[in-house]
Design a protein around this nucleic acid. Sequence first.
DNA 1: GCAAGGTC
Length: 657
Amino acid sequence: MVRVLCVAEKPSIAKAVANHLAGQARAENVRGIQWVKNYKFDFGFDRWGQCSVTFTCVAGHIVEQDFGERYKKWTSCQPAALFEAPIESRIAAARKAVATNIEAEARYASILYIWTDCDREGEHIGTEIRDIALKVNPNMQVWRARFSNIERAHVIRASQNPVRLDEAQAQAVSARIELDLRLGVAFTRMQTLALQNMIPQQSEDRNKLISYGSCQFPTLGFVVDRYLRVRNFIPEPFWYIRVAHTKDDIDVKFNWRRGHLFDRMAVILIFERCLLAKSAKVIKMAKKPTAKWKPLPLTTVELQKMGSRFLRMTSEDVMKVAEDLYTKGWISYPRTETDQFDPGINLRALVGKQTQDGQWGRFAQNLIDGEFQQPRQGRNNDKAHPPIHPVNYIVPTTLNERERTVYEFVVRRFLACCSKDAVGEATDIEIDYGGEIFHAHGLTVIARNYLEVYRYDRWESSQVLPQYTVGETFEPTEANMHDGETTAPAYLTEPELIGLMDANGIGTDATMADHIAKIKKREYVIARTKTGGGAAGRGRGRGRGGARGGRGGRVGAAAAQNGGGDTGGVQEFIPTTLGIALIEGYDNMGFETSLSKPFLRKEMEVQMKAICEGRTTRNDVVQQNLEQYRAVFNRTVQQIHVLKSAVTKYVVNANHG
DNA sequence: GCAAGGTC
């Protein structure tokens, strides 16, 4: 019988696919690794007939790239030499047993069938597996499965339609690996050696490390950018008009359509026109149904944003806990960009597992009893993993506190997705007063629906507004001119930072939390827990700040209508003097695009796509980038005084003063 | 003592 060796990227895929193909596969232990099993079974492939199959896995990359011995020691070469120093590939120390297992199985198989994730990194991992297998058995045929989820029918279809590895995608990753290594290590050594004597030692036995990385620097850049905007903020006064009217014992406040103006004289003139008009006329009185949409299926980025906003955990902790819940089998794979459920998945069955819970069980039961609605479809699909959802019920009290918090969030989010939008009625009233438009907005929540289970969203009825009729006129009970001033934006919070990284392609969903943790560890930023609520998305500078100090009083706006509900405990980031000095130093070097900005990383992403599409080659991209960065590197060395003087200004002086 | 990306 033909022997086929299948290799997945991680244990869960190997197990799921093997069991789909086999019915029930026999799991054999592998020496030296508890979490890898070799699943053995027979299977009929259209192409090769009845085969004897071993289905095993790796755990991410197996091969590691590093500089050779000669360049390992910091003092052994100039950092600039790392732009061309030879790079060696070897099996990572922690992956020896995995590689040995593949070698052992490959010796007896004639076909290698690769089942790594269908993304760029998966394609590269596939080539790593192939190289290891071909070394012991050069005659193997190499194939690859194209699959985008692990639903049974899909997997079986994929198994019968093998394709070839996509070399271009693997090459794109290879370019990324080489560039990140050379640039990261070269700049890290250079700036550490140049600056470490100016900076207090981190601890007695360890020298301060001043690292550079294509992701950590832009991440730091976002924090510094916001900090400088806060520090350089100059409040601007503004003026506005507010009208109130009491009807049916209800005090209705009308807001000025223009919001506010920064010209006091202009507001005075308009205000006088209003007063002259004496009476206001209702020009719109509309009640219309409105809804608050239920959330989209959960992606990794969203989990980290929501986690750092509502669960009093850092994004790093949220990911750690989510990975734990995944390996224990309670939730699905936590690294996904997909916000749409595959039509094949049995969502009702998953909801059904939650009916036994004391807190959300009744809600789940109601869904089963008829309230269930298909989740919304987002726009993202990584074709590898479904949205994050609970796969099994676990009594929350048997989990530790952090696990419980994350599990509860995943479950509530999932149940919310399978529920209905919240329904309400919006009332909009507009009046014309001296030629100016003022409006009042009211909301009555009619059915909370998904909000019953998803307590992270807020949507509450406002004060009930009285009935007006279009054409009706009245004399306002109160008409006042108020003043206020714009308020500085707040420091960058963790959910905001994750949003910026995501939008700018800094890191991947799986690594964003690592980069944030790294700039903390390097002491480029400090994280501090924000107290009180109302954190995110506030005050983006001019004109958005709340109106403070209005003399007429009663200026404080009602609570945020939407998405508020911050419980406090959000992390906010403030750069250290060292962090500011690094960013300012590079910004002052006069490069077209500073290393602190996200553009270089974005550009690398564009070039990786070009490699994938065959428009350029791996070597061209690597050579061109190395050339470009070598120029930046050399100029940085020549102008190291610019960097040093920023460090002097922010770190040295700050510590003596 | 260095990067970023997989994953356990």
